[in-house]
Design a protein around this nucleic acid. Structure first.
Length: 664
RNA sequence: GCGCCUGUAGCUCAAUUGGAUAGAGCGGCAGCCUUCUAAGCUGCGGGUUGGGGGUUCGAUUCCCUCCAGGCGUACCA
């Protein structure tokens, strides 16, 4: 709010004059109780130290001067507690600024193009709830950055030449005894059977993948199959590579469909195979070698590998060796990622070819997604890469690898790029023992396991909650509830409402927790539509909308009738005044809450803000009738509050990827 | 061993980055639908913020030290 900006600077000037301290920074907080004021600043506690005077007496002097000269935007300034300065705002001026929408958005603390990389599911199995946390965090960050005026490109990296895909190929060829044609037929039959409840192909792949680990354990010599297949994938040669290519493209299709159900979309899918084919890696390798950042290990356990010496976080910590190129010549993820990061910043001196995804393969949707390719790209395509800032949404278990990548960038002289490459780290999603017992009754749980707070998911052991299963269950439950309330509405409308509610429940659940907390997935919590959930927030909006719908029925006019109206909020006194005014103040905070969430990468704070707002509205709704209010001034103010609430929530929930529905 | 993270109400989590009386949701108990949708609202009960030191006007937050748990430290990612 501009009012707040002006208020801050005039207070700072005033304090400078009084105290003689020039560089005072006034920070605003919210007092614990609204009667104490609209804003509070503890600035006098800092001044007390510098001026060697009691904070209370400084505060009193400032408040006295402020009331004599007046501070624009403030109705009055008071002293409270040990030396807080509490400020009461000029309510009408504040409301009028809020309604006019003239407040400029907070500016991002950086300029230029931003790349957000997220989702990055290995293309060998179905998406699970851990991937959902990644995608929802990434997508929410993207929405917030765009809201604040950022130019954002969303990338979903396809690791199609990694060990996990190689393992799947081994699984199909050696265990299932299928060739490419066989796998193709299997995929097709899965697609056909899906509509009648058959197991989708991505889940079938997960089953096969889970059989590979025991297959290796039975006979360790079989690990040779993995190494050979991996090398073949990298070189892009042979039947294994062909199968991997097919599998990866099919998995991408499934992942995009799953994410589209949550409103998560991408601009570009960079493929690791293209990084190799187009010799991005070869180039990065040469530069790393020239700089001495990597060296060929001549002896020891890493003999024959190209390794990077990794510095510990602090001095004196031991040095690790990270293998960048394996002894058989294949490249690890870290190596490929260094090349990829260089390209993102436009520091590689090479570019991909690009082609749009074939929408014939994606009948459920139709937004434009580009994919990298190694040859015959379209000549016309959006400019990709060349960012000045990059967010890599990757879970905390990969912190070590991310540090190695960053160190690689620095070794190549790209220090500023390393600084601008941000690991958006978050903790994993695990399963509570209770959820495992419920969802995987056949899975053996030791007594020790039952005592733990949570257990890690494992694709290799087939232990994980599949995203599509969870979304499906949410949609079924939401639909049942919608049908109960809106019998008689067109089926298509009810399905669409249910989808929006399911999405809200899931996205809110994934955002509720601060990012460095392990989410111990609880199926009952995740499926809930009550309490601190997305649907609760939606419901509050629906109630506000209903007021206007009912108004149109009764009075012939709706929301449009309050547009531009600025009622007198200053004349409201007592509890009613405080509550109406409190709701207004809270609603005005959306832009700064968003900026704070982006700044700290703590997106849970924005989710909680929306929930708090919904709570405040529900209290207001319960206490104060709007349409039945007889005093026209009061009624007008309440209608304006409802209108602002809808607007704020549409924006706020929109940032979380949650729609504000017409009805529920 | 070393590095990172976590420990707050019965359970799941917050706490404006050092601020005023530590708050929400779930669960429990007691109420509220002839009123703008009860996916809601109101009330009650629930706390030595893992333990112990320190720093200061002031600590859940910062420092030290124990204790407990998780993750990482792979020729997986």
């Amino acid at each position: 709010m501009q009012i707040l900006t002006r208020l801050r600077s005039s207070l700072q000037r005033l304090i400078a004059t009084i105290s003689g301290a020039g560089d005072v920074r006034v920070e605003f907080e919210t007092p614990p109780r609204p009667e104490l004021g609209d804003l509070a600043t503890p600035v006098c506690f800092d001044l007390a130290r510098r001026l060697r005077r009691p904070p209370r007496s400084i505060a009193e002097e400032i408040a006295k001067t402020a009331s004599e000269t007046g501070v624009p935007g403030a109705a009055r300034v008071e002293v409270a507690g040990g030396g807080y300065l509490n400020i009461f705002l000029d309510r009408n001026a504040f409301l009028s600024e809020l309604i006019s929408g003239a407040t400029p958005l907070p500016v991002l603390p950086f300029t230029g193009k931003v790349i957000v990389e997220h989702t990055n599911i290995n293309p060998n199995k179905a998406a699970h709830i851990g991937h959902l946390r990644n995608a929802v965090l990434g997508d929410t960050l993207v929405r917030c950055l765009r809201f604040l005026g950022g130019e954002v490109e969303v990338q979903n990296y396809i690791d199609d030449t990694g060990v996990q895909v190689a393992d799947l190929v081994v699984g199909f060829r050696e265990i299932e005894r299928l060739d490419l044609e066989g796998v193709r037929r299997l995929a097709l039959s899965c697609d056909e059977a899906e509509s009648s409840g058959g197991r989708p192909f991505d889940q079938v792949c997960w089953d096969t993948y889970a059989r590979v680990a025991p297959f290796y354990e039975e006979d360790e010599r079989r690990l040779k199959l993995r190494a050979e297949t991996l090398k073949a994938l990298e070189d892009g040669r042979g039947a294994g590579a062909e199968m991997a290519c097919f599998l990866a493209s099919r998995m991408i299709r499934h992942h995009l469909r799953t994410m589209d159900r949550l409103g998560v979309r991408y601009d570009l899918l960079p493929r690791e195979s293209d990084i190799l084919r187009l010799r991005f890696w070869a180039r990065a390798f040469e530069r790393l070698r020239e700089r001495g950042a990597i060296r060929l290990a001549g002896d020891g356990k890493n003999r024959g590998c190209w390794v990077m010496d990794v510095q510990g976080t602090e001095e004196g910590a031991g040095e690790d060796q990270k293998i960048i190129v394996r002894s058989i010549g294949s490249v690890t993820y870290v190596g490929k990622d260094i090349a990829y990061q260089l390209w993102k910043f436009g520091q590689l001196g090479r570019d991909f070819f690009y082609r749009p995804l074939d929408w014939a393969d994606f009948p459920w949707s139709g937004y434009p997604v580009w994919q990298t390719c190694s040859e015959e790209g379209k000549t016309q395509h959006p400019p990709f890469g060349g960012a000045s800032r990059v967010y890599n949404v990757i879970d905390a278990r990969q912190s070590y690898l991310q540090r190695v990548v960053t160190q690689g960038l620095r070794a190549l002289g790209c220090s500023s790029e390393a600084d601008a490459s941000i690991h958006f780290s978050y903790e994993m999603v695990a399963l509570s023992p209770a959820s495992i017992a419920l969802l995987f009754p056949d899975h053996p749980l030791s007594d020790e396991d039952r005592q733990r707070p949570y257990l890690e998911m494992s694709g290799r052991r087939g232990l994980g909650v599949i995203a599509d299963d969870l979304i499906g269950e949410l949609e079924r439950r939401a639909l049942a509830e919608v049908e109960r309330r809106h019998l008689g509405r067109p089926a298509g409308e009810m399905t669409s409402l249910a989808r929006g509610i399911a999405m809200a429940a899931l996205r809110y659940y994934m955002l509720r927790f601060t990012r460095n907390r392990v989410v111990a997935f609880d199926i009952e919590d995740a499926l809930s539509f009550e309490g601190e959930t997305g649907p609760y927030c939606q419901y509050a909006v629906v109630r506000a909308r209903n007021i206007f719908a009912r108004m149109r029925e009764r009075e012939g006019v709706g929301r449009e009738s309050v547009a531009g109206q600025v009622p007198d909020v200053a004349r409201l006194q007592g509890e009613e005044g405080f509550e109406h005014w409190g709701l207004l103040k809270e609603m005005s905070r959306l832009p700064e809450e968003t900026a704070a969430a982006v700044d700290s990468l703590e997106l849970s704070s924005l989710a909680r803000y929306c929930h708090r707002l919904a709570q405040s509205f529900n209290t207001f709704y319960h206490r104060y009738p709007v349409l039945a209010e007889e005093d026209p001034q009061r009624k007008k103010l309440r209608l304006v509050l409802c209108d602002l609430f809808i607007k704020t929530m549409e924006t706020g929930l929109g940032l979380l990827g949650i729609e504000a529905p017409e009805r529920m």
